[in-house]
Amino acid sequence: MDFFKGQGTLESAEWVLRAVYSFFFLILSAKCMGRRAISQMGLLDFIMALIIGNILAHPLSDPRLGIKGSSISMSVLVFLYTAISFLSLKWKTLRYIIDPPPFPLIKDGRIIYRNLRRARISLDYLLASLRGEKVTDPQKVALALWEQNGSVSCFLKTEHDPVTSKQFKMQVAPFYMPVTVIKEGKINEEELKLIGKDMNWLLQKIDPAEIKNILLAIHTQDDKLEMFYYK
């Protein structure tokens, strides 16, 4: 366990052991903190990411620093993160500080400029976020909210909502998730069984010599195969 302690120099194997230990320790810490810390970057998440990066970076690059202290520090931070996340569920004031509620940037087609300043974003950033939601005209927006994770949630006015088959009382087929039966030239027999098919059925649809040239083949709702070939 010499790689765990600070030394003047480290052998190549000890550097490798430090990196492997830090990698799995970071994975374990992320699992303890929950997927929220990975999928979103709130205030607390951002602070944790900065601190953890600095704590692990130094012992991985400086042989004079032991990794024991970094591990202890990181364990304490993970505990604090988990504790604060739990307490924020109980205390409204703490939750308001850590995860502030969303506030409107657009309401009834009107841009609220003071809230742009509150979110510290430009008008160009707001318009780019709307384009990301396929909205080109702010006047079509009933409500656009600035979320605590730094994203914009957009809701169109009723008259600009996409028309659905339900509004016309149309009969539509139920949802069917296409099944991948061939991927990168390899047949997925488990997926074939899920759709009630076998190899004989597949070989009737596809020339066996062509399978290796198929990048992707999916089974569709109308019992057909859509194939994409390597180019």
Rank of each mutant, 00 (worst) to 15 (best):
S153A: 14
S122M: 11
S122E: 10
A57Y: 13
E191V: 06
I27S: 04
I97P: 03
G109K: 12
N149T: 15
L130Y: 06
S151V: 03
W146Q: 00
P59Q: 08
K68R: 06
M170I: 15
T82D: 07
S73L: 08
K134T: 11
F23E: 01
G132W: 00
Q171L: 13
P178C: 13
F24D: 04
S153I: 12
R117A: 15
S70A: 15
P174G: 11
Y21G: 00
N149F: 06
M227T: 14
V179L: 04
N149V: 13
T164Y: 02
R117C: 09
M199W: 05
G42I: 06
D62S: 10
T93F: 05
A13D: 06
I47R: 03
E190Q: 14
P63V: 11
L60H: 12
A217R: 06
K92W: 07
M227Y: 02
K212S: 13
I111H: 02
F3E: 00
L43M: 12
I84P: 01
P100Q: 09
K169A: 15
L44H: 05
R114G: 06
L60C: 07
K183W: 04
G132T: 03
A37I: 13
L94E: 02
D207A: 06
L65E: 07
K231A: 12
I27Y: 00
I206A: 03
P138Y: 02
E11F: 05
G150I: 12
G109E: 09
V20Q: 08
S122H: 04
A142N: 05
R95D: 06
A128E: 09
I218Y: 01
D99M: 10
I206W: 04
F3G: 09
E189F: 09
L89G: 08
L43R: 11
E210P: 01
L194H: 00
L77D: 07
N149P: 03
D222S: 10
L215S: 08
D207P: 05
L17F: 11
F103W: 10
A83S: 11
A57L: 13
R110G: 02
F25L: 11
A144F: 05
V16P: 02
A142K: 05
K212W: 01
I206E: 07
K68T: 15
P138T: 11
I218C: 03
T220F: 04
A19Y: 07
C154E: 00
L143A: 02
S165A: 15
T158G: 01
L87H: 04
A144K: 00
